[in-house]
Design a protein around this nucleic acid. Structure first.
Lengths: 243, 243
DNA sequence: CGGGGGTTTGAGTCCGTTCAAAATACGTGG
DNA sequence: CCACGTATTTTGAACGGACTCAAACCCCCG
């Protein structure tokens, strides 16, 4: 599946990590002033349109990325073109650190799902900071440990739950990221995912997802309108996860 | 599923990390003499019988473990008792570092598949070493990055491959760990896994695995006798992975 | 207004599960 | 060392969920 957009990213100059709105949520939150200056000197910031690849599976990893704005999808595909959407990465998160620390080529393709601003930090700068600042290293250790727990969780769900249950589970996770809860408990969200991508997150086909959506609508568990989703009752969804 | 054995581990005294046969393959290979002394002071070594739990899902994580001998299985189970065998850990590898760095309770149960010698290193000692020695931190970063790539690989396989293909893929991975290749290319191995456990690694049921084994035997792809496996031709297995 | 991709729906098939029973392996105590 | 009871493994038959293939629909964009 080729990226939807071939428009090039637009370089953005003069951005300062110090003032980055998302800095406190990233692995860089522990940095001291000197490190931040070093970061500013070595990073390259750019605005990407939606549907653009930031890096491609198999390409050489030369550093890591920091998402300042937007949503990025990590896709992994096998030799025969079948692919999974491994995870979504949102503002304040770091990108490409697995391949960076593992030391090989990228094992995933990262693609913008929305317009996005992403900063690139080259290898040397990252290494220098990690050597100097053990807290930064710990932050990455923690981040990867969480990812690992997440991956194990996903694996377990994939095996023990039906597609229907996994869909309910996905909706719940998407709520944490994109949902707003009204006074009466109704959840509304607009997700940056096409049906194909949603199916790829569940490890299923678009046809199966379409049928699931229909069932959920029929049963009043959720309402779907394009990429907008309304969930009248969270408990109903939680019940689905059991099945 | 309760652990098969309730025999307690037997403490082993006087062991020295410096002389540990597996030290060079673990994350501790970068340590200097002072760190090793510190490790020796803070670690507790013990011999476990086969089928004993080293730690249990949900228990508090108080440090990490180092496998000096034997094979350990990491299992994860959900609320309804369904479980997956996440991975096998062999001599020279570290255990429990995910939960350690993530900071919460254990998300898996670790159980010995063979008699095993395992050392425990408490929280403070690990943290001290990591603070002092950035190379050790990097070693763990690298280890977790590899695990993450592995987990993504597993996820992709789970979705894109049939159970049959995954079984072939598993046999190939087990070969790296337990197999010996004869002059004529024949591979022989004895795996520390019951049928149930093998099925749990594939994310399927024992019945399905039994049928797969029968098919492989009928087609001459592999011969099974209890826990012993003979693979006459690796290429035949590689072909199976495509299907 | 006319493509063209993405989405939905339908019908049929296959793979893997479930339930149940038989066969085998295993550990224990006599 | 053998006999027994239990747990695991294997086999069988039937069911069901998700996939495939194919066509219709829809929406967006040119």
């Amino acid at each position: 599946m080729p990226p939807r957009s071939s428009k090039p990213p637009v370089p953005v100059c003069g951005t300062k990590c110090f003032g980055c709105a998302t800095r406190n949520t990233s692995e860089w939150s522990a940095l001291v002033a000197t490190d931040l200056v070093s970061l500013d000197e070595h990073k390259i910031c750019a605005d990407y349109p939606a549907g653009r690849a930031i890096f491609t599976q198999g390409a050489t990893c030369r550093g890591i990325f920091c998402v300042s704005l937007g949503v990025i999808a990590l896709r992994k595909s096998d030799a025969r073109g079948k692919s999974v959407l491994v995870r979504l990465v949102t503002a304040g998160e770091t990108l490409g650190y697995r391949s960076f620390f593992a030391g090989g080529d990228y094992s995933c393709t990262a693609e913008t799902m929305t317009p996005a601003r992403v900063c690139f930090v080259d290898k040397e700068a990252v290494n220098a900071i990690i050597q100097r600042n053990p807290v930064a290293a710990t932050a990455f250790l923690q981040r990867m440990a969480f990812d690992l727990l997440d991956a194990e969780e996903t694996q377990l769900n994939q095996v023990t739950m039906s597609t229907r249950g996994r869909f309910a589970s996905l909706l719940l996770r998407l709520r944490d990221e994109f949902g707003v809860t009204a006074d009466d408990g109704t959840i509304t969200m607009r997700i940056p995912l096409s049906r194909q991508d949603t199916a790829a997150m569940l490890g299923t086909r678009p046809e199966t997802l379409a049928r699931l959506i229909r069932k959920f609508e029929d049963e009043g568990v959720a309402r779907f309108d394009g990429r907008s989703i309304v969930i009248p009752d969270v408990d109903a969804l939680l019940d689905e996860m059991g099945a």
